[in-house]
Amino acid sequence: MPHIYTVGQILELRSAPRHSNRPSGPCEVLSCLPHDKGPVLYRVQSLNERNERVVEEVDLTPSSATKSAAAMAESRFSIAVNRR
């Protein structure tokens, strides 16, 4: 079964069933995890916290949320090169 969502996409994460502290709200897909059987999994990061989580595709829905300019600037990085 192929992944429906793509890396970088902003989605809504449903709150977890009982006995979990996973918050609901907007999140960004960081990676699509490989699988042979079982549920389709994604690694996501909530836009409201720094934790990364692995969630099933059924816990995600399309969102109209977008990343803030500050969050977009923070996610970019540069590589410094030392020259001798």
Score class of each variant (00 low, 15 high):
residue 1 M to R: 12
residue 4 I to V: 08
residue 4 I to E: 09
residue 5 Y to F: 15
residue 6 T to Y: 00
residue 7 V to I: 08
residue 8 G to N: 07
residue 8 G to V: 08
residue 9 Q to G: 02
residue 10 I to K: 01
residue 10 I to D: 00
residue 11 L to D: 02
residue 12 E to W: 04
residue 13 L to F: 01
residue 14 R to V: 00
residue 14 R to W: 00
residue 18 R to P: 04
residue 19 H to S: 11
residue 20 S to A: 12
residue 20 S to L: 01
residue 21 N to I: 07
residue 22 R to L: 11
residue 23 P to D: 04
residue 25 G to K: 09
residue 25 G to Q: 05
residue 26 P to D: 09
residue 28 E to Y: 00
residue 29 V to P: 04
residue 29 V to W: 01
residue 30 L to Y: 02
residue 30 L to S: 09
residue 32 C to S: 07
residue 32 C to G: 03
residue 32 C to R: 06
residue 33 L to D: 02
residue 33 L to R: 08
residue 33 L to Y: 03
residue 35 H to S: 13
residue 35 H to T: 09
residue 36 D to W: 10
residue 37 K to F: 09
residue 40 V to N: 07
residue 40 V to P: 02
residue 41 L to F: 03
residue 44 V to D: 03
residue 44 V to W: 01
residue 45 Q to W: 04
residue 45 Q to M: 04
residue 46 S to K: 06
residue 46 S to V: 02
residue 46 S to H: 15
residue 47 L to A: 06
residue 48 N to S: 14
residue 49 E to R: 03
residue 49 E to D: 14
residue 49 E to G: 05
residue 50 R to Q: 14
residue 51 N to L: 14
residue 52 E to N: 14
residue 52 E to K: 15
residue 52 E to S: 15
residue 53 R to Q: 10
residue 54 V to T: 14
residue 54 V to C: 00
residue 55 V to P: 00
residue 55 V to C: 04
residue 55 V to I: 13
residue 55 V to Q: 03
residue 56 E to F: 07
residue 56 E to S: 10
residue 57 E to T: 08
residue 57 E to N: 05
residue 59 D to L: 02
residue 60 L to W: 04
residue 61 T to D: 10
residue 61 T to M: 04
residue 62 P to W: 06
residue 63 S to L: 04
residue 63 S to I: 03
residue 64 S to G: 06
residue 66 T to Q: 15
residue 68 S to C: 09
residue 68 S to T: 15
residue 68 S to H: 10
residue 69 A to C: 04
residue 70 A to Q: 13
residue 70 A to D: 12
residue 72 M to I: 15
residue 73 A to Q: 14
residue 73 A to N: 05
residue 74 E to N: 14
residue 74 E to T: 10
residue 75 S to M: 06
residue 75 S to T: 03
residue 76 R to Q: 12
residue 77 F to E: 14
residue 77 F to Y: 15
residue 78 S to F: 01
residue 79 I to A: 03
residue 79 I to E: 07
residue 80 A to E: 05
residue 80 A to D: 03
residue 80 A to V: 13
residue 80 A to R: 14
residue 81 V to H: 12
residue 81 V to S: 03
residue 82 N to P: 10
residue 83 R to T: 14
residue 84 R to T: 09
residue 84 R to F: 13
